[in-house]
């Protein structure tokens, strides 16, 4: 029998094996807590595995993740599933999505004591519990750009030869963050600011990863990312080449939240998980796995995090205002940039 014949005959067999292998129902004695999250969170080097291990030590349950693309896909999925969703907890929406998420009526109050929270902005939401935060920042390559802009104004009005890579607010969270940042600083003048900034934009990518990989390839000296980005390079690559530019107007924050699902069969476990999420034990996992700041002041942080420059001010537009105007502001941005 020739090699080719063999492979041809093996196909159905492999197919069958694959089917059987995947279709066998998982036998679970312990109660199971299903957590919907985004793929970076559940990934092996993300916070997911350590949090799962930490929580399972005490809960007497099995925690399992269902991971989708990103925060927006997370909300889409829950919305599509509606009340029949299998999720008990959803981890990884951000503050810009909470109003729309609340409007679905699918989420229940978290009931967790939030006194220990130390966020740079005021946060009082009974449903959505913050578990990490960060701030958007322009990261620059110190080798290519010794004199970074010191304010959003300097970025907007600076030398058009020094380019920046941005993300599309329609497809990416940092992209939306930048849109809101410009709006928070410039208000009605935002379209004019965008029109001016236009000359400095190298390109507007689909996702953060696309933009950042172009940046590390040296395509532009600046990219929109997070204030915590330099910490990654410090810790993992022992490099201080990339730094965050602090802007005098203040920075736009990103606050990632978790919430329990209404009518979950594991409501009690869900609440315990949420409470666990803001313990120091859980929070100490966040910095070097999700590369964001913990939400409690007492959580352990690596030295490199403490050396990161802290924005003097946080600009946060109210959630309902964002939800109401996002479409209009995106259209405004489009008009200013796309002609």
């Amino acid at each position: 029998m020739t090699k080719s014949n063999l492979s041809f005959r093996l196909f159905p067999v492999l197919l069958g094996l694959a089917l059987i292998g995947t279709a066998l129902p998982a036998v679970a004695q312990k109660p199971e807590l299903t957590v919907y999250t985004y793929s970076g969170f559940a990934a092996k080097w993300g916070p997911g595995p350590a949090l799962k291990a930490g929580f399972e030590e005490t809960c007497g349950c099995t925690l399992s993740y269902v991971a989708v693309d990103d925060g927006v896909a997370l909300l889409t999925r829950v919305r599509l599933e509606g009340a029949s969703t299998k999720a008990d907890v959803v981890v990884g929406l951000d503050q810009n999505l909470t109003v729309e998420a609340a409007a679905t009526g699918l989420f229940a109050p978290h009931g967790v004591e939030t006194k220990s929270l130390a966020l740079p902005v005021a946060w009082s939401d009974a449903t959505f519990l913050p578990f990490d935060h960060g701030a958007f920042a322009v990261i620059y390559d110190t080798k290519a750009l010794p004199q970074p802009p010191k304010s959003l104004k300097e970025l907007v009005e600076g030398d058009p030869k020094q380019k920046i890579i941005l993300q599309d607010p329609r497809t990416s969270t940092p992209g939306l963050g930048m849109l809101l940042w410009v709006k928070a600083v410039y208000g009605d003048q935002a379209p004019a600011a965008w029109a001016k900034l236009r000359g400095r934009i190298l390109t507007t990518t689909k996702s953060w990863g696309d933009a950042y990989s172009l940046f590390t390839k040296g395509e532009a000296p600046m990219v929109l990312s997070y204030t915590t980005s330099p910490a990654y390079h410090l810790i993992e690559e022992k490099s201080d080449r990339y730094a965050a530019a602090l802007f005098s107007e203040g920075h736009y924050p990103q606050i990632e939240v978790a919430a329990a699902v209404n009518g979950s069969k594991q409501a009690e476990l869900a609440q315990r998980f949420l409470a666990f999420l803001i313990t120091d034990k859980a929070q100490s996992i966040i910095p070097t796995t999700n590369w964001m700041f913990p939400v409690t002041a007492t959580a352990m942080q690596p030295e490199e995090f403490k050396t990161l420059p802290k924005p003097s001010k946080m600009l946060l537009l109210p959630g309902d205002q964002v939800a109401q105007n996002r479409k209009a502001w995106t259209d405004e941005w489009l008009k200013a940039l796309a002609q």
């Binding site: 995106t330 489009l334 940039l337 796309a338």
Partner: peptide, 19 residues
């Protein structure tokens, strides 16, 4: 298209769909 297009002027229907 998004990565190399240089800005939202260069967009395909797929982006509008995604949005």
């Amino acid at each position: 298209v998004l990565a190399l297009g240089g800005g939202p002027g260069a967009t395909t229907l797929e982006v509008a769909l995604y949005e």
